[in-house]
Amino acid sequence: MGNEELIVKLQELFPAASIIQGNDWPEISFESGADFLSTIDVLKSDQTLAFDYLFCETCVDWKTHFTMVYHLDSTRFRHNIVLKYKLDRETPEIDSLSFVYRTSEQHEREIFDLFGIIFKGHPNLKRILLTEDWVGYPLRKDYDDPINMIKL
């Protein structure tokens, strides 16, 4: 499907979400509180979408809130979308995708490690890159470490 068709199709499926055309691919964003797992389920199992390949999963700290960003690809149709999900800063929680896309098990551990997002239902949520006793979440914008970090 081309990007325009995709946008039309997605608007049909998710009337509540805001969909725009990004730089490369359509971007679909959800506010916090939306049912995330069922969204993913539709995106993955719909016969004309078939987004079966999660190639990038990350998080952005916007100081007031977090945004989870998922890049999805379809190995059958070769179309891509960007999926965004807003999280609030005090209780950043989202459903884990580790049973939908196995790759996200490791990605989510990394995001938990560096951003402190809690993934509900993750089988093994603990720090992966830093040591267990590390304090703080380094990729957050307000992270400060006067000992290890030498600022220019």
Binding site: F55, T58, V60, D61, H71, R102, T103, E105, Q106, E110
Partner: peptide, 16 residues
């Protein structure tokens, strides 16, 4: 950059 993320091939390959 405000945020930059490298989706590295090795990271995903290792998960398998």
């Amino acid at each position: 950059p405000y945020r930059i993320k490298f989706r590295s091939p090795g990271f995903s390959n290792l998960s398998a």
